[in-house]
Design a protein around this nucleic acid. Structure first.
Lengths: 219, 219
DNA sequence: TAGGTGCGGATTGTATACAATGATGTCGCG
DNA sequence: CGCGACATCATTGTATACAATCCGCACCTA
């Protein structure tokens, strides 16, 4: 039996996670310059591990590093919304098809998260809500039993999270989202890939358009 | 008018490209340990930029870094073949659909590469052949006009290249591959997304099975 | 006043140096 | 003879230090 170790996370992983989280949640804003000295001081490390972390984030598409000019949080442009959702839909569709073939069942976890989400909505905890959303989709992806697919989707999700934090505000988050989640989980558990995919498509396009609406409204 | 600069590539980029290439072509074999001192000496840099390069490659899934134990070329397992091609097909299908919607025309470049490929086959230059293959598919992906999709596919291609170098030998590379390429390019140029996709699917499954055959034959 | 030129501070890039960690082999003990 | 503790070595992790580059500003010139 596997026993959870107290802190499997190394210091470097903690650093990169903290940096990533700061970008995903908009704490570091798109286009913002990331000064190595400042960040190193802020996280209590030297510039060496910090630079390594920035290189990783560069690979994940979260920052852009220009030679001798430093790192900048990759800017988000409206075109990204459509492009990202296009890729995401293709990947998540594949994930659902494979998961349905296996009759993977994530209904329990989904219901649990649904409950948490309700509380988060009441508390107005948007970040928590986004995390629950991502966790649900990550679990669905994992149900495909294809690690490469999971990794690819994870990369897309990083960007999606940035979109959400940048453009969605409290009030625009609709609780019906979780009805979709439950419906998809149920379809997958019954092996109904086509049904799950149809519902997913509606779900994603709605989510995408909500972001586009907010974006247009903001100017 | 744009004037091409002699070397837009910075030193760091050259380093990371060299490292990546060494892994993709199998020069550094799957599972092989990557000692920082040795690599730094080999590439004529110190360990600082080398470590940054390794972090990037870790993000690309080409190496695995264990804390205090160093980097290893990510091993390839048979399961990877099926998983990677599954993801690749989903992404490339999307790319073709979008490219066909735009009536993107890559026939000329394809024919040019076909010629080069013929010469490479005669010369037995497998690496050149693989590069031409990748370049063709990269151009097709770019024709989707979706940078995120291109990036996602690029990541898959890194792994595919590793599979090819690891499992394909001279003689198993079939020239008919380029007939498929031309047919797909033509279908896309005519806006026939469905036709292009159908041919692509055959093309990829054949390519995948050729790798699986070689893999089974070897071991 | 517009534009170019050179200086100075700010910031990044990388080498060197040392600390921390993990692997290896040897010795002693049961 | 097997196994475990310890010392030693190889290797990674990171801080410090300095060199290289870039950017902004003042100044000069036409």
């Amino acid at each position: 039996m596997a026993i959870a170790l107290p802190r499997p996370e190394t210091r470097f992983e903690a650093l990169i996670d903290a940096l990533r989280e700061a970008i995903l949640t908009g704490r570091f804003r798109p286009g913002e310059r990331l000064l190595q000295d400042d960040l190193a001081a802020a996280f209590g490390v030297s510039r060496i591990p910090l630079r390594e972390a920035l290189r990783r984030l560069e690979g994940e598409g979260l920052v852009v590093i220009s030679p001798n000019r430093g790192a900048v949080v990759r800017p988000l442009i409206p075109k990204d919304v459509v492009e990202l959702y296009d890729v995401r839909l293709a990947l998540e569709t594949l994930a659902l098809r494979r998961a349905a073939e296996r009759y993977a069942d994530v209904r329990e976890a989904t219901r649990g998260r649904h409950g948490e989400a309700r509380r988060a909505i009441e508390a107005g905890a948007l970040t928590t809500l986004f995390h629950l959303d991502r966790d649900y989709h990550a679990e669905l992806a994992a149900a495909s039993d294809n690690p490469h697919l999971v990794a690819a989707l994870d990369g897309q999700w990083s960007q999606i999270m940035r979109l959400m934090h940048a453009y969605l505000r409290a009030g625009t988050y609709m609780p019906e989202v979780w009805d979709d989640h439950e419906a998809i989980a149920t379809a997958v558990a019954h092996g109904d890939g086509a049904g799950a995919i149809a519902r997913l498509e509606r779900h994603l396009l709605l989510s995408r358009d909500r972001i586009l609406d907010q974006l247009r409204a903001a100017g």
